[in-house]
Amino acid sequence: MIGEAAIRAGCRFYAGYPITPQNELTEYMARSMDNIEDGTFVQAESEIAAINMVIGASMAGARAMTSSSSPGISLKQEGISFLAAQELPAVIVNTMRGGPGLGNIAPSQGDYFQATRGGGHGDYRTIVLAPDSGQELADLTRTAFEYADKYRSPVLMLADGMMGQMMEPVVFPEPIDVSLLPHKPWTLGGAEGRPSRIILSLLLNPAKQEELNWKLERKYETITREIPKAEKYMTDDAHLAVIAYGTAARIAKGAVKRVREMGLKVGLFRPITLWPYPKNDLRDLSRHIRDFLVFEMNTGQMVEDVKLSLEGKSNVHFYGRPGGTISTPDEIAKMINTLYHRQNLEEE
């Protein structure tokens, strides 16, 4: 799904390295790029090589993508930091699996901190998109390429092993005409007849480095204003809202439907951009919702962002299962039910 969507979004360079559970994407790109006239697929000799090939392809002006799973993304962090510093667009897909270390190959959301806090070294941010379905994998892949080019920034797609392996009917957006994409005036492609351009990230003069850092920061402020996105599901009359993203949100939605049948007024808040976090939307909800239950497939990493958004105005509860275990909607429904009655929410 991501592969086809990426090609339709104008991706013409893909570099990958084998790691489960995202090999299907690499294999799809190996088959498909061969059939596109100007498409290039490279199986790199390592994760680090793959991300650096993306840096190169991006400098040359192509829409470039790489993908991996948790341990492989850790190896790519240096390259992601360079992409941010050199203001190069790129799309990176992380199909998260159980960790730390090599962990396992089951779906997990343990890389939330790594994704939203930067992951690599230095003062930078990465746009993070969290799809929750096959359709959204396809849609957000296009969005990712658009944001990458618009903001000249690496964009991370945060999926997990469940999404990496599932099959669903998807309606793909129409392919774009790559030749109609806006001209990038900063690419490197031979300096015949013009002054040569230079892309670098080594700024020995602290004043220059500070200048770059503030320039990046201003860009991040713009992004924070422009793109936060979330889905609200049955939150209008809710006394309690579950907050979850990706696969966890999908499970939570099933749980919300179950408890609604029992007459509990519960909704779901699903952040689609994890950085920038949809703070304002969440703060709006806290006007009429006093209790929030954060549900994640980790030990509670997003809780920080929820608390920062709510600024102590509501109660934040947490339920999570790390390590690649997957909760059932019934399990979450039971949690919601217990919490709902413990907080005496039915009386409101």
């Binding site: 990958g16 084998p18 090999n23 690499t26 294999e27 190996a30 088959r31 061969d34 059939n35 697929f41 199986q43």
Partner: peptide
């Protein structure tokens, strides 16, 4: 292999 598949072109 899956990333060097044999087909019409390759």
């Amino acid at each position: 292999t899956t990333t060097s598949p044999a087909g019409k072109v390759s």
